[in-house]
């Protein structure tokens, strides 16, 4: 399988697939971050997470169209506005869903799964009715097109690098929010002991709503970033939801570093294997690897160790 390539070719392949893996890593990580917050912190399995991401993608699409039609001069910067719109739209929908659906089901986690799965079907049909069944793509601003030629055989697409940078910023932001802010402290307290958090003065209902909205909002940003590297269809979220759950579970549900490390491992092994074998073989090999590691470490890669 490696015989046909020279050594320098192989080097270039590894570097380029490495970069492709990094871009995949970025989308995975953005998806998984939102999930890790909702699943890891609240224990809610949100099957509609992919649809929140697609909502963000459609919002980005709409914003790009609006800028194209009404503000062509500002078109190169539309993406930054789109990201904020995507975040707000997904977070707002998330807060509404938490109020209408999730908050009534905290004592029945399996029902949450069913309810959010139903929600995902509703959203998919809604997207299909509004935006049509065909996939839509956004037009990238000119500065994001093209690629950066490092050597004659290695080149890296600029939009991919942008997505990576964006992911780094969002991840750092989330880490700061969870570990340094007052909201983050309240979220962690509620996670560790809901009743006691209430009894020290934390409004657990408000914290739950904020947490869920935040997780969904980050999914919206993920969707926004997703438009940079793929086209958006009503069911595109389904392709990512399984992988994102894999990332969260593999990393250890309550650990941010775990989520990052596991997104990295899974995306890199996928993208490198994909080049040498077929896509589905890569998927299978990665899954087997994850299953074996989870059998050895059921709590995930990184789990906090404290006396309880």
């Amino acid at each position: 399988m490696l015989g046909d390539y020279s050594l320098s070719d192989l080097g270039s392949i590894f570097v380029m697939q490495g970069f492709a893996g990094l871009i995949l890593f970025s989308v995975f990580l953005l998806m998984a971050l939102g999930l890790a917050i909702i699943f890891g912190q609240m224990g809610v399995i949100n099957m509609a997470h992919g649809e929140f991401m697609i909502l963000g993608a459609y919002m980005t699409y709409l914003t790009s169209k609006l800028f194209e039609t009404y503000l062509p001069a500002l078109f190169p910067g539309y993406f930054f506005v789109a990201m904020i719109v995507a975040f707000l739209a997904a977070a707002l929908l998330g807060a509404m869903v938490e109020w209408a659906l999730i908050s009534r089901l905290y004592k029945r986690p399996l029902d949450t799964m069913l309810a959010t799965w139903g929600l995902s079907l509703i959203l998919q049909q809604l997207y299909r009715s509004i935006f049509g069944a065909r996939e839509v793509g956004v037009e990238l601003p000119p500065w994001m097109l093209g690629s950066w030629q490092i050597t004659s055989t290695i080149e890296v697409p600029i939009n991919g690098m942008f997505v990576m940078a964006l992911t780094a910023v969002i991840t750092a932001g989330v880490a700061l929010l969870i570990y340094k802010s007052r909201l983050g402290r309240q979220v962690r307290a509620v996670v560790q002991n809901r009743v006691m958090a209430g009894a020290v003065g934390i409004d657990t209902q408000k914290v739950d709503r904020a947490t869920f909205a935040l997780g969904c909002g980050i999914a919206g940003i993920a969707g926004s970033a997703f438009t940079m590297v793929g086209s958006t269809g009503p069911t595109a979220g389904q392709l990512y939801i399984v992988d994102s759950f894999l990332v969260v579970v593999f990393g250890g549900a309550q650990s941010l570093i775990g989520t990052i490390a596991s997104a990295f491992t899974i995306s890199q092994s996928r993208s490198t294997l994909e080049f040498f074998t077929s896509g589905s073989m890569a998927q299978v090999a990665t899954l087997i690897g994850v299953v074996v590691i989870l059998m050895l470490r059921p709590q995930g890669l990184f789990a906090t160790k404290v006396r309880r």
Binding site: R182, Q192, N193, M196, A197
Partner: peptide, 14 residues
């Protein structure tokens, strides 16, 4: 019922 995975300071801050 302290919050075991948080630091002492964070516990008081809650």
């Amino acid at each position: 019922m302290i919050f075991p995975a948080m630091t002492v300071e964070e516990n008081i801050e809650t």
